[in-house]
């Protein structure tokens, strides 16, 4: 009796098992095609994703996609970058034109919902709407901005957040709306408005372009939460895991002090089991994740470095953008980046 039940279970397993063992639909498709299609911001996004003079895509978001390609294929070059605009990005993802978006899309409930059916496996950049004011106004907090004239782009959530913030704090403001960001910056630079508002990363980039950047401060308030990260279609758990653990590997590596320069040496000499498992020296984390290689994380760090190194290369203080790390430090340095352990 017991034996027949076991046999039936075994038969059932044999019949349905292999189907279950296959990866998700999207990951299968990527593997079959042999290349991942990654949607990046068109025309470009300073530091995050832009084509260089040779037409090769570069930047923070671009390296995130290449890192995912290492996990899937063991090869950072098996990515095709597909430029998508703000208007076309989600239709492009939904229609299968791209497999993954890496273009500073904010994780929101609406996008994650069963209506839109997208999935945000991990956050790679914590952004938030901020306000910049001239230093000479001696303003230290956004709460002092009652009656201010504010330069803002129309028709965006930026405009909505601004109105919400001022209404919530019982303050009044006069908007100066200009659609083009360069024009908007000139309006602010020439003194047509007291405040320039945008997401922090964009605002910091705009500050470098002012006639006297050092004369302007970005106020500490973040009046909106803009967690940015890669987006995929809902319904493929394996791809979700792969994207998430690619990002986690970058963050874990920074937390543990593993860098592009020392990764091989640490892999050879470390006795810390968590480090050894992350770098694929022991255990089979890579295999259980569905990565191409057991040491996928080591390969990613060897190629691009850890999260901090990628950040510093494209966005950090020594780049023209000069973004401070702020919220994007690891948790043990006072930031929000916290990745689950590789075990």
């Amino acid at each position: 009796m017991k034996l027949t039940a076991f046999a039936a279970a075994a038969a059932a397993f044999l019949a349905f098992g292999p189907v279950e063992a296959l990866a998700g639909r999207d990951l299968d498709q990527i593997r079959q095609r042999g290349v991942m299609r990654c949607g990046v911001q068109a025309p470009s996004n300073p530091g995050f994703g832009f084509p260089n003079a040779q037409g090769v895509w570069q930047g923070f978001n671009v390296e995130i996609c290449r890192a995912v390609a290492i996990t899937i294929f063991g090869d950072p070059n098996r990515v095709e970058f597909v430029p998508v605009t703000t208007q076309s990005r989600f239709p492009a993802l939904a229609s299968g034109e791209v497999d993954i978006l890496s273009n500073n899309s904010t994780w929101t409930l609406t996008r994650d919902s069963n209506v839109n059916r997208f999935n945000f496996p991990a956050i790679v950049f914590y952004d938030g709407q901020s306000m910049m004011v001239p230093r000479r106004l001696n303003i230290t907090s956004a709460r002092q901005l009652n009656g201010a004239t504010v330069c803002v782009q129309p028709g965006t959530t930026t405009e909505l957040n601004l109105a919400d913030y001022f209404r919530q704090h019982n303050m009044r403001f006069t908007p100066v709306v200009v659609a083009d960001l360069d024009e908007l910056r000139r309006a602010y630079d020439s003194g047509r408005c007291d405040v320039f508002t945008n997401d922090f990363a964009a605002l910091a980039a705009q500050r470098t372009l002012l006639s006297r950047p050092q004369d302007h401060v970005i106020l500490p308030e973040r009046i909106s939460k803009e967690p940015l990260g890669p987006v995929i279609r809902q319904g493929d758990e394996e791809l979700t895991n792969i994207v998430a653990w690619t990002v986690f590997a970058l963050i874990d590596a920074e937390e543990m002090g593993i860098t592009q320069a020392n990764v091989e040496q640490i892999a050879a000499s470390s006795t810390n089991p968590i480090v050894r498992r992350l770098l694929g020296v022991e255990g089979n984390m890579g295999e259980s994740l569905g990565a191409a290689r057991a040491d996928y994380a080591r390969q990613i760090i060897r190629t691009f470095g850890n999260y901090g190194e990628i950040y510093e290369r494209w966005l950090g203080e020594r780049t023209p953008l000069g973004l401070e790390r702020g919220m994007n430090r690891t948790w043990n340095n006072g930031g929000l980046l916290y990745a689950p352990p590789a075990r």
């Binding site: 025309p43 470009s44 300073p46 832009f50 084509p51 360069d182 980039a205 372009l209 494209w314 023209p320």
Partner: peptide, 15 residues
């Protein structure tokens, strides 16, 4: 036209 707008996003050539 888009290539030029994309070039404006090169952090080494901002502005």
């Amino acid at each position: 036209f888009t290539t030029l707008r994309a070039s404006l996003g090169d952090p080494n050539w901002l502005g």
